[in-house]
Structures are given as structure tokens and as C-alpha cells.
Design a binder for these strands. Structure first.
Lengths: 136, 136
DNA sequence: TTATTAAAAGAGTTGAATGTCTTTTATTAC
DNA sequence: GTAATAAAAGACATTCAACTCTTTTAATAA
């Protein structure tokens, strides 16, 4: 439903939120090992997340990625939108070109309800909360 | 969320259910024109649907595709499964490799509920019902 | 039985997402 | 300032769904 890149980004944020502080950075290699992804590809994802302000990085010896305390309040919905955009959830489940309240398909209303429930929950779930809820 | 092929298959079944009888078949070209898809690609999709028993076809002059009355009772869920399989709906929304009732993610329960509501409705919606509900 | 029609089959192409490899840039430690 | 470290950047490769084009097979009609 969502992209793999989003899943990787979420796993990476999860790990970094747990393991990093400003004085204890996580290197790309450590991160790549922990989430089982090639460091090259993960590098691109991380680069993009840093650029968009989801976490911090510094180059050089002792460098790496880390997450400020206050940034663990960002939600998985924000992360999803940053990585995948919002086009995914804004189309007819059945692929009808024009499906709307005036001319809905039989799935339309139910899909809207479900979609909104899931989006609401994603908007309420911060990285911090996500981490508190799951066992790795 | 689902494949384009499924959307095309549904549109094709919709058109054929409306326009065909055993003595009034719909040709591939007519169908392709009506749903705005290249006849070659549509041909493959139709071929597969015929092979799987969702509708009938005959070659030659006057040939084409048609849907038996009783086959309009097949559901859009059956069509989806035939085209896309069922793997789509059976994975964690957030892409966790092992997400289950014992070790769920924060989205797990809500997603299960929504997923089941949508699947139930798809199982209840026959091609016939689908056609009665929508305006083209 | 031959020409025509129309689906079936198969080979090839494209584009986007995903993934790999190499080079560059920035930072630190000495 | 030089060597080492580690992220950033960019070029290249792979994969898969989606799509196109060509050939074959089956059915009909005359």
C-alpha cells in the first residue's frame, strides 16, 4: 500500500530514536546493519530525511545521524507524506476515474470512513509513541 | 492500493455485464474503445479472465466476450483475488516484517478492523450489484 | 475450402521504483 | 596541513508492472 522506502524510513527513524543522542550518533553502517539494508540505498533515504528536517547528521569521524528529543514528536503521518506524498490515499479504492460523493461506487463511503480512521491514527502516532508501543 | 489491471478488469466486466448476452457478444475492440485501453493489453487481461472462468469468449466472425446471467453473481472480491492474489491485504500497513496480535504495531488493530470491513463489503458486492449502484 | 474475422499467444519495450557502485565533500584527530 | 572517517552526491544497474507489436489459432460465412 505504501512504498518500501517509507517502511525503511520508519525503521530507520525507530532505531535512531532509540539509540541516538546528540553525543551518541548512529552511523550509516550501524543503521544499515540493524535494519538489514544496503548502506548505499539507506544513505539516499537518510539524506532525504535530513534534507527535509526529520533528523540531524554530521560528516566525519564520530559523525552520523541523531534525533533531537523534540523531533520524536513528529508523526508517522508526517513521515509518510514526506516520503510518499499524499496521492495514495486520495483515489478510489476500485480505481474508478471519477468517484465522488455525487456519483460514488459501492465501496466509496466505507472506504472514506476506513481511510480517515487510519489517517487519524497515523496523525496521532508520534515516533516516540510508536517506539513505546512496539517490541523490535 | 490494488493493481491497475484489477481496475481494468472491473471496468471490462462492468461493461460486458451491461452490454452483452450470449447472442450479443462484445468484441475486444469495442471493449477497448469503451474503457479507453489498448486492445492488445486488454486482450491479455480478458484472456486471463476467460481462462479463470469469469466470462466466456469465442473467436471468429461475430465472436467476442459475454457474461452469463448467473456469472453476474461473482463478487468484486473474487475478481480482485483472481487478478491480484490476496497478499496485498495480508501484510502490515507500516511494512513491519513480523506484525501480529502478540507483537502488534500501533496501527495493527485499527488496520485489521478497516481491512475486514472493506473485504466484507467487497465480498457482498456482486458485479450485478456494482452495476446497479453506479452511473458510468 | 477459402477468405475473413476476432481472440489467443508470444516476444519485445518502457518507465518508475528499487538498489548498487564510485566519487566527492565535510569533519575530526593527530 | 595531512590522513582518516563518514555522510552526500551522482552515475549506473536491476526489476517488475504496464504496455505495444506481431504472429498464430479458431470460428464463421460464402
Amino acid at each position: 500500500m505504501f512504498s518500501r522506502t517509507f517502511a525503511y524510513a520508519l525503521r530507520a527513524m525507530t532505531y535512531i530514536a532509540q539509540e541516538s543522542k546528540e553525543d551518541q550518533k548512529v552511523s550509516l553502517d550501524e543503521l544499515a546493519t540493524s535494519i538489514q539494508l544496503s548502506p548505499h540505498y539507506l544513505g539516499k533515504i537518510m539524506q532525504e530525511l535530513v534534507r527535509k528536517g526529520f533528523l540531524n547528521s554530521v560528516k566525519g569521524p564520530g559523525g552520523g545521524f541523531w534525533l533531537d528529543k523534540q523531533r520524536s514528536d513528529i508523526t508517522i503521518y508526517q513521515l509518510l507524506n514526506a516520503v510518499d506524498g499524499d496521492q495514495i490515499v486520495n483515489s478510489c479504492l476500485m480505481g474508478r476515474l471519477k468517484c465522488n460523493a455525487k456519483n460514488p461506487c459501492p465501496m466509496h463511503d466505507e472506504y472514506l470512513i476506513c481511510r480517515n480512521r487510519l489517517i487519524d491514527l497515523m496523525k496521532k502516532t508520534s515516533i516516540k509513541k510508536w517506539n513505546e508501543s512496539i517490541e523490535l
